[in-house]
Design a protein around this nucleic acid. Structure first.
Lengths: 257, 257
DNA sequence: GAATAATTTGCAAGATTTTGCAAAAAAATT
DNA sequence: AATTTTTTTGCAAAATCTTGCAAATTATTC
C-alpha cells in the first residue's frame, strides 16, 4: 500500500490512477479526491495516460483499457464513424447479387453488411464471425461457418483450423474488415491467426472487397495479411486522401466511396 | 448487486443496460425506471449501443444482440423434461475435470451442461452447437467451434465440412445428445448430416457419454449414428426401464442416473 | 547553496457535452 | 381513419471539459 505522506511525482500518480481504474470506471471527482489533487490535474494525467494508450477517457471519468495494444484502434469514436460504416456497408451491398456465395469477415463494418443481407435472395454466406453468424441464423440464406478457435476479442474463429473448411469452398465475393491498412503493405491486424485466415480467404475468393473507413488508412497494425494485390476493391468513405486513391488505382485496386 | 451511491457515467449505465437486456427484451420505461434516468437518456444510450452493435432496438424497447433464442419446437421439448434434463446435466458435470478437453453436442440437455461449465477451470471445449458456443463465449475456457453448414432446426453445424477440423483434434470426453435411442441401434437423429458428425465425434473421442432422458429410450429416429459400442456411458433419469439397463450393461455400456 | 529556467499545478472563464423536458413526427393499434 | 403509444427533434439547464494564466514546485546552472 502506498501512503501519501509526501508529494507525488506525476508518474507515480499516474500509476495510482491506473491502479484505481483497475477496479472499473472512476469519475474525475473520485480520482481527484482520493489522490488529493485538483480535477484539472487528474484530467491532465488521464490525457497523458490516454495518449500512451493505457486508459480511455469517457465523459465524466475514465476506464481502464484491457488490451492496450488493440483497443485504441477499436475505439469507435462515436456516431461519426458509425455513420461512415453504415454507408460503407450499403455501398458493399450493391456488389452482392442474388444467389452469390459471399464471405463475411469479422469487424463492425462487415457486421453492418450482414444486417443488410435480408434484402437479397438465396445467398450462400460463409463467415468466421460469430456475430455475423448470429445475425444470419434467422435468415433464409444458406449459412456456413468456418470452424476454428474462438477469439473473444474479435468474436471470430481464426487460425489454422479454419483452413480445413476453406479449402473445400470456392467463394465468389469476399468482404473483409481490417484493423489497419497501408498502401504499401495492405491489410494488417493484431493477431497472426486472424491474419492467416484472412490470407486464406483472399486466396479462395474470386473477388476481394476490403471494407475500411478512412480512419484506418495509413495505420498499419502488427500482422500483415497476404498480398495487397489480392484486393480488388476498397470500399471506404470520402475521408480517404486523394493521393492514396491514386496510388491504389496504380496498383489496379478500385476505390469506391 | 450494484449500489448506486453516486452518479453513473454513461459508460457504466450502458453496461448496466446491457446486463438488463441479458435477461431478454426490456422496455424503455423499465430501463428508465430501474436506472433512474429519463427515457430520453435511455434512448440515447440504446442508440449508442446499437451503433456499437451490442444491442438491437425494437419498437418499445431493446434487446441484446446474442445468438437467437432457441426455436419454439426446441423450447417446448426443453420445458417438457426440464427437471430431468437438469439432473442429467449435473450428473454429467461430475465426469468433467479441470483441464479436460470436452466435446459438447447439440440438444437441450447438453446445453444445460454447457451452462454449468463455469465451475470448472481451464477446459478446452469443442462444440458444433451454436447455442452452447454462445453460452461459452464469455467464459474463460478455450473454445473451439467446428465449422460446417448451419442447421437452423438444431442450431448446430453439421455435415462433411465438420470433418476437416475434427480430424485434427483429440477429444478426451464427448457429451452427445440425441433424438432417439434404442438398445439395438443406438443413437439416431432426423438428419443424416447430423448423424455423420456425431459418428465422427465418437471416433475421435476417448470416452463417449450419451445424455438422454428416458423419454427418448426405445424410440428410434431416421438416421443412425455409428456403432452403439462407441458409447461408454449413458447418463439418463430414473425413468429408464430396468430391462434396458441390463441389456446395456451386457454391452459394456455403463448407465448412470 | 542561491539564482534562474522549466515544469507542474490549481483556478476560473468560456466552450462542449450531456441530460431532461416537451412538442412534433412516426409507428402501431383499434 | 382515429387513437394511443413510441420515437425523434429542438431547446435550455446542468455538468463536464478545455484553455490561458499565475502561483508553486522541481530541475538546472552558476
Amino acid at each position: 500500500m502506498v501512503t501519501v505522506n509526501r508529494k507525488l511525482l506525476s508518474t507515480e500518480r499516474e500509476k495510482l490512477i491506473l491502479q484505481a481504474l483497475g477496479n472499473g470506471v472512476r469519475t474525475i471527482t473520485e480520482l481527484s479526491q482520493s489522490l488529493k489533487v485538483s480535477e484539472a490535474t487528474v484530467r491532465r494525467d488521464l490525457q497523458s495516460l490516454e495518449e500512451k494508450g493505457k486508459a480511455r477517457r469517457v465523459h465524466g471519468g475514465a476506464e481502464q483499457i484491457r488490451f492496450p495494444r488493440i483497443e485504441p484502434l477499436f475505439n469507435e469514436k462515436t456516431a461519426l464513424h458509425a455513420a461512415a460504416k453504415n454507408q460503407i456497408a450499403e455501398l458493399a451491398l450493391k456488389f452482392i447479387e442474388d444467389n452469390d456465395t459471399v464471405y463475411l469477415d469479422g469487424g463492425s463494418t462487415v457486421q453492418r453488411l450482414a444486417a443488410l443481407l435480408g434484402s437479397k435472395r438465396n445467398l450462400t454466406v460463409v463467415t468466421n464471425s460469430m456475430t455475423a453468424a448470429a445475425e444470419l441464423t434467422e435468415s433464409a440464406h444458406r449459412l456456413i461457418i468456418l470452424g476454428g478457435e474462438f477469439r473473444a476479442l474479435s468474436q471470430t474463429l481464426v487460425g489454422p483450423m479454419t483452413a480445413g473448411i476453406l479449402e473445400h469452398l470456392n467463394i465468389s465475393k469476399a468482404f473483409l474488415g481490417t484493423i489497419g491498412f497501408t498502401v504499401e503493405e495492405g491489410i494488417s491486424t493484431t493477431d497472426p491467426n486472424e491474419a492467416f485466415t484472412k490470407e486464406l480467404v483472399m486466396k479462395r475468393s474470386k473477388e476481394v472487397f476490403l471494407l475500411a473507413d478512412s480512419s484506418k488508412i495509413g495505420h498499419p497494425s502488427f500482422a500483415v495479411s497476404g498480398n495487397i494485390n489480392s484486393i480488388g476493391t476498397l470500399i471506404t468513405d470520402p475521408g480517404i486522401p486523394d493521393a492514396v486513391v491514386r496510388k491504389l488505382n496504380k496498383k489496379n485496386i478500385k476505390v469506391v466511396f
